[in-house]
Design a protein around this nucleic acid. Structure first.
Lengths: 322, 322
DNA sequence: GCCCAATTTGGAACCGGTTCCAATAGGCAA
DNA sequence: TTGCCTATTGGAACCGGTTCCAAATTGGGC
């Protein structure tokens, strides 16, 4: 009935008396509105979607926790879309759109293609990127070039000259931070007059065991590095496992710096570049909610700070470099 | 149009020719059905909900990863409900039900009250518990009494007599594993003729830092324990942090066993009781999907195995007990 | 006391699918 | 060729809200 709807939504004037009557009836019948019907007539789903790659990645989970904390305080529900493989990533965007299942979309650590963005804009889907960048979409990011520079520069300042970079695949089109941090790494080397050595840059799929393998490979070089910059803390853990297995002392014989500051890096005492993962989820979700109520005239960019956290895998006093 | 619907859902007979025409038109118009309308008319939301406490807890996240992996292969979407405080837990159940937002519900590490269950059954909401038990609901569990016994018995067999149990609060009505493992702990002690010492059982909120505090307290006892059974690996990590800070050698001077086998316990080399967290999410979700298509005549119980994983926080050869 | 305006309220149309029902067309047997 | 039965298809009702529109009621001003 129309009047009931007016009472529930309070848009137009309803007399105090009828409001009471309606509310009493609602209470008595234990009535609550059917969401599907409301969604159909309002044309809104009251759901926001989070598109995340590799839901097993601790940094992604941490960001998501930030998102959840914001969603919880809003009127919206959160649907999780786990993108398991990069190849199928684009089909996800399309799928989410055509099913008209969400009012807004959060893409975490996934760079959309231009076609994706075109589709999103054609569908007028409010979208915010977290840890990814596209000129036409609002985003929450860090300066990964600066981060790569900061880490490498720190190792250089400790006296290291043979510095390796262990990372995901550079050519992954959906993971730009890998390239950005690599750029920073190269910049810091160049600035210090240290030539880039290709054998010091190893790439592999993300994860502890792949990183461990890469570390093994580095240790077999005739001229092994004295310091490692790992693209992520997860990979730094893999590095640490290999050094432990081979009896290489850290930080005495090898310095190690990671990236992200996930919880594990804290209790493993890994020196790292901290990016506020949790805060990025919060900001991203807040930005999305805001975008949904009043779309900004042009894409916003929120730049979160990076901070070097010195722990026990680097020794600030006694560098042991060659 | 009726015919279009028939083509899309393929229920009744449609001639091959019209099917082709309809499909062609769909392709040409880039048409896709509106989910809200479909939901309204079908009376199904095609969404399942996961009610999880403390989304920051690694073991919960791991279970959820199993859930996600199953949902991804189904027709359903997953909505995440994060229950931040135990007090508000029951309001969540009610809220989820009255909004008619999900077709099925997965409760992870949350024990529902009898009233909750009554509401769920009144609403005919298919529900499966993971890591929780209620006689009227299907569930995926482990034998926590046996787990507590297994851990304690292992420490006893190593020669320990002064064994402490660090856990969450026993009286938390929504977390029964805490009590069950405590029961197993007591059983093992009794069987070995070791009297239970209340000062060896410490309770606190879940988490690393609380566990670390408890460990500090234990080390201050005039007669400190020589072995610790931690309710969870997370708490075992807290214990380890305190022993490192105080220079207590593990396992030489203190044996430690955790529970869960989260990833961190692997690279911290913590001996633990492994429960297959990921598998519990998978089984729970599969059981739910099955329950939704054909409700079982009576609640099912799936018992997953436990396994003791010996790592480096217990020394099987040289117990150093008093 | 009457008329006009404002406030309130009931009813209908609509959102976009699904499903039931009736009508049509086509095929086969008599 | 006619008639009946079946396969197919178009149309209408329905899911349960929201919102627009028109009608009714009330109040105020003249």
């Amino acid at each position: 009935m129309g009047t009931v709807s007016r009472v529930l939504n309070g848009h137009t004037a309803v007399s105090a008396e009828t409001r009471q009557r309606v509310l009493a009836a609602i209470a008595e019948l234990n009535y609550s509105p059917n969401l599907a019907a409301r969604r159909l007539s309002r044309g809104k789903t009251m759901v926001i979607g989070a598109l995340v790659p590799y839901f097993t990645n601790p940094s992604v989970v941490r960001r998501l926790q930030g998102v959840v904390s914001v969603v919880k305080g809003s009127q919206y529900d959160l649907i999780l879309f786990d993108v398991e493989s990069v190849e199928r990533r684009d089909s996800y965007v399309r799928n989410v759109l055509r099913r008209q299942i969400v009012d807004g979309l959060l893409m975490i650590s996934l760079t959309p293609t231009d076609e994706d963005v075109a589709e999103l804009q054609r569908a007028h889907m409010p979208t915010v990127l977290v840890d990814a960048r596209h000129p036409q979409l609002s985003r929450v990011v860090v300066d990964n070039v600066a981060g790569g520079y900061m880490a490498t520069r720190y190792l250089i300042d400790l006296g290291h000259r043979r510095i390796a970079y262990i990372s995901d695949f550079l050519d992954d089109p959906f993971n730009s931070p890998v390239r950005d941090r690599f750029t920073g790494y190269c910049q810091a080397l160049a600035e210090a007059g240290i030539p880039f050595r290709p054998e010091y840059h190893l790439q592999g799929i993300h994860g502890r065991s792949a990183a461990r393998q890469m570390m093994r490979q580095l240790l077999q070089l005739p001229d092994p590095p004295t310091a490692i910059f790992a693209y992520s803390d997860t990979q730094a853990i893999g590095v640490l496992e290999e050094t432990q297995a081979q009896g290489v002392a850290v930080p005495q014989h090898l310095a190690l710096i990671g990236f992200d500051n996930i919880e594990a890096s804290e209790y493993l005492h890994i020196t790292t570049i901290s990016q506020s993962l949790y805060a990025s989820g919060i900001s991203g979700c807040e930005l999305l909610l805001q975008t949904m109520t009043e779309p900004p005239s042009e894409p916003q960019e929120l730049l979160l700070p990076l901070e070097l956290i010195q722990r026990q895998t680097t020794d600030p006093l006694l560098p042991t470099s060659a």
